[in-house]
Design a protein around this nucleic acid. Structure first.
Lengths: 144, 144
DNA sequence: GTGTTTATTGAGACGAAGTATCAGTTAGTT
DNA sequence: AACTAACTGATACTTCGTCTCAATAAACAC
């Protein structure tokens, strides 16, 4: 779990300034559980304006502090990111997000390379379901 | 390649009316190559209003005439759909869209079921690259 | 054909998500 | 303390999509 000061310091080292608004947005992001919308952050901050929230979120994306999560309905949300991953298992019950093993993706890419004439350069990969905890909590909703 | 009249007839059989606006929107959709935005359709039609275009597109989705394609930047586009597929290989050069083998997806789901405690209920799966034709046309842009 | 019913239409207001502009502010440097 | 470039926030704007509502027109019965 990254800390506010660590992130701010990392940004400073990259040449970005340490401002009150930025710290406020980052703190709001760090307080989130699972995935969240930018609007959740906008509502949580007091001083920082909407434009600054959007700008800071883009900054955090570029520096891999957060990454985008695609929801089932096509909406884009965000989450604190682990390094190098952007394939998710999203719990539709609690909003929790789990990383997917990279090796599963790698194998898929190999297979596509063999079966098609495409040179694959990028992908979106998101799975939706109910996590172990939620399945235990409400077993009656078990998927068929 | 489905024909306008076939689609209209299929809609009629399902209880939907055969109207001029609907036919115009469907004709515009059928004239598309690769993936397209709803806005492309709005600009192509003459009489049909924006709301009608959106309503008809939803109708075409529900009846599996078109399906959504997620672009790399998170935008949603549409394409004429094959039956049962909604996993795509999208060419970033020409906008062409190719279906992905369902078996690849099935194996992935099996693997996820074994490796995690999630009950998978849905997914998004889109790959981006350059198709064979475009690679031949511009080999200097070959992916690394 | 005429009439009736109901789905459908289009204009336009609305909302969410995100970008662009720009004058004013402030962090970091000297 | 002064300077300067980075940053801010208010606001206007765009895009994508939904909602409302009075007007229209299919489809069907007669």
């Amino acid at each position: 779990m990254p800390k506010l000061e660590e992130i701010v310091q990392q940004l400073e080292e990259t040449g970005y300034r340490n401002t009150a608004s930025r710290r406020e947005v980052i703190a709001a992001v760090l307080s989130q559980r699972g995935h969240f919308a930018i609007d959740d952050i906008c509502q949580q901050v007091r001083w920082a304006g909407r434009a600054t929230v959007f700008r800071t979120m883009k900054l955090l994306q570029d520096t891999s502090v957060v990454c985008r999560v695609l929801l089932e309905n096509g909406n884009l949300h965000y989450r604190l990111s682990s390094i190098g991953h952007h394939h998710h298992l999203v719990c539709v019950e609690c909003g929790g997000v789990q990383d997917m093993e990279d090796c599963v993706v790698a194998e898929m890419l190999t297979r596509l390379a063999n079966q098609t004439s495409y040179a694959i350069e990028g992908h979106w990969l998101e799975f939706y379901g109910r996590c172990g905890d939620c399945r235990v909590a409400k077993p009656e909703l078990q998927a068929v």
